[in-house]
Write a protein that binds this DNA or RNA. Sequence first.
DNA 1: GTGGTGTGCGAGCGGTGCTCTCGTTTAGAG
DNA 2: CTCTAAACGAGAGCACCGCTCGCACACCAC
Lengths: 254, 254
Amino acid sequence: MESDEISALVWVQCSGVWHTNRMTGATRTARDRARAELAHEIKAAARRHLAAQGAQQLSLRAVARELGMASSALYRYFPSRDDLLTALIVDAYNAVGERVEHAVEAAAPAEHPRAAWRGLCEAVRSWAREHPHEYALIYGSPVPGYQAPEHTLAPFARVPFALLRILRDSGQDFARPSGASALPGPLAAQLQAVVEAGGLDVPPPALARALFAWTGAFGIVSFELFGQLAGSVDPADQFFAYAVERHADLLGLA
Amino acid sequence: MESDEISALVWVQCSGVWHTNRMTGATRTARDRARAELAHEIKAAARRHLAAQGAQQLSLRAVARELGMASSALYRYFPSRDDLLTALIVDAYNAVGERVEHAVEAAAPAEHPRAAWRGLCEAVRSWAREHPHEYALIYGSPVPGYQAPEHTLAPFARVPFALLRILRDSGQDFARPSGASALPGPLAAQLQAVVEAGGLDVPPPALARALFAWTGAFGIVSFELFGQLAGSVDPADQFFAYAVERHADLLGLA
DNA sequence: GTGGTGTGCGAGCGGTGCTCTCGTTTAGAG
DNA sequence: CTCTAAACGAGAGCACCGCTCGCACACCAC
């Protein structure tokens, strides 16, 4: 859920000062502890504002007011509004990732891969419905010109990696063509590059099915949260469950 | 593409003045013509800014500056920034809807339903990639607290309706169970209500498959545009084509 | 003509992100 | 222990934002 270490690292990188982090390892000075605590409080207040009104309305000045400090003091902790948002993005990725991993774990993925896939999907959707503004922050339209920093990559990848682990442990025989026709050449090559770059242990056809299921599930959740399903299947509980089963079929999960 | 009649109607409703529209029917006064022309120019300038920097950065004052007028004068035409954005949303829905309808039409949907579905998907994706900020405006995270006005519904429905027309004209025998198991009771009931409310002519199982394909295709386009596919299948041409074919299979399109 | 109405303009209000300066406090080196 | 450099919080200020209001001017129906 929290990722203060990562945020602290970001800040230290921004200010260009490294010795404070290197010095004694575990024991920190009082100032460092106060700094970490205040940064945590800033993020907590910002997260409250985010949950209440969305990223668009998140105002540094309002956060500073709530904390009883001058707005300019916030810039000692987050160099810009975008950096604060990035910290919240990382936290959100970790929150949904943790929720998903717990749900998958609880379903005993090796024995019941289909139940694990169901758990993954339900975890994503329930978290999204509980934190719609945080979901919109990470899966909605990005801030124009926003480029995700490198350290957001690992938290971002937790959900798709959980899906790939389910597939890997599902006991499928990936060598068999599994009835589906072979992938077109260019797609197979592209996916093979992904497999090698990411050190994955599923072959391209399974990766293609995983991407299909992943994008499909998130497509439904996004449409539901962003109001595109209003007037058709809203609430989407039943339709989402239906789609999850269809994807499970396509994934070959028993 | 344009929808100035609708926008004009909105404004007239907002100002509460109806006689100007009723008066002579076709012939308008010089003032009315100037008004419509200027409203059109405002939207055009706003669309340029939207395309250049996104909805977040769209500033009424900047639009006014570009048009050489005082910012307060804009409020004679659009009561608020949100109303201007709503006008752009309607235009965007109509733009993608028109593009999709042309693509479907060009594919002779009755004879080649699968090609029509391909055309629909490629039209959506190509329009989205050409107008990413406008796509984000309508399919990304909505402005917090934003409630779509009634008159946005018809433009919004053009794409899903095009898909339903393909299905209806595809010559499928909807009476046959088509191999798939029956829908769960609650989902069937929910979809039946949708069918009746919308006057649709496809049965619930086909509607479920249509929703599945619709949300799936847009899920991929959104993920691609919003950067979620960076590092895996980006650009997503090959994967998108693969997903379109899988959905075509599930839709039963020959 | 004349009065009502639509229109553009400028000033202004409260808000925003962000910068800079200034005094204070603190941590670590000598 | 002293001294210095760094970090800190506060405040003023800049440019910009959405939006409101009052005021002139131009138009149009009567």
